[in-house]
Design a protein around this nucleic acid. Structure first.
Lengths: 118, 118
DNA sequence: ACCCTCCGTTCAGAAAGAGAACCTAGTCTG
DNA sequence: CAGACTAGGTTCTCTTTCTGAACGGAGGGT
């Protein structure tokens, strides 16, 4: 599709490192995929079952993560070829940020029986 | 509209604190607004100029952040009444996560003249 | 009277996401 | 050998969200 520089692309060249980080993981799903990787998940269907994300989006997000060098896609068997996704060093370096978010969520977003909106 | 529990609402009651954190800040703009607050910005037009976000979305995101107790909206003058947005304690507690993202961005997303996608 | 500022809201059109069905390539079951 | 199953996707249509630009309102300044 070769689309124009849109706001996502602009983010990736922003002066601010937080913005550049968000150009990779700044959407609803991507960080959850990375989290699942930290939890040992590595296969398409595992992510899909864990997150409830649509297959279409999951496919797209995995591609982006691989393109950005956060995950790598490896064949884990032949006949038929099957792939899994593993964190690279770049991906593993997300750990501190993820821990930061985890701590915040733990402290400030307690689970309630009633959902926020109702 | 009273829409059904959608995936965002589901996130807010997820077992995982990272997911619950993302139910608040898991979109393209929200964390950037929070970052701007840390950088001392507090007014609608300041955010808008800094981020290039549409006014419509900015309005919506600020509302959400206030609803979630991350920011508070205070009148900073009368005649006409004007409001600014300041981090609450809950908002300030984002600092570690933000630093984590900043460090990652700094290390792994160097600014390049050529955007990533080309 | 007219323009300016700040903080929004409204609207139409474009982009992204959701949900379900379909595809491929090999394996297994009867 | 037909039919079902598995893993990893892609394609389709419909709905939701985002974008960009215009408009509103409440006061101030000249």
């Amino acid at each position: 599709m070769t689309r124009q520089a849109n706001r996502w692309d602009e983010l990736s060249t922003d002066w601010c490192p937080v913005a550049r980080a968000l150009s990779v993981i700044g959407d609803r799903w991507t960080l959850l995929i990375v989290r699942d990787c930290f939890l040992g998940k590595s296969r398409f269907d595992e992510f899909q079952a864990s997150l409830g994300i649509t297959r279409h989006l999951l496919s797209d997000r995995l591609k982006r993560l691989v393109d950005h060098g956060v995950l790598e896609k490896n064949p884990y068997q032949q006949n038929p070829v099957r792939y899994d996704y593993r964190l690279t060093e770049k991906g593993k370096d997300f750990a501190p940020a993820l821990v930061g978010l985890k701590d915040w969520g733990k402290k400030h977003m307690p689970v309630r029986r009633e959902a926020a909106v109702r």
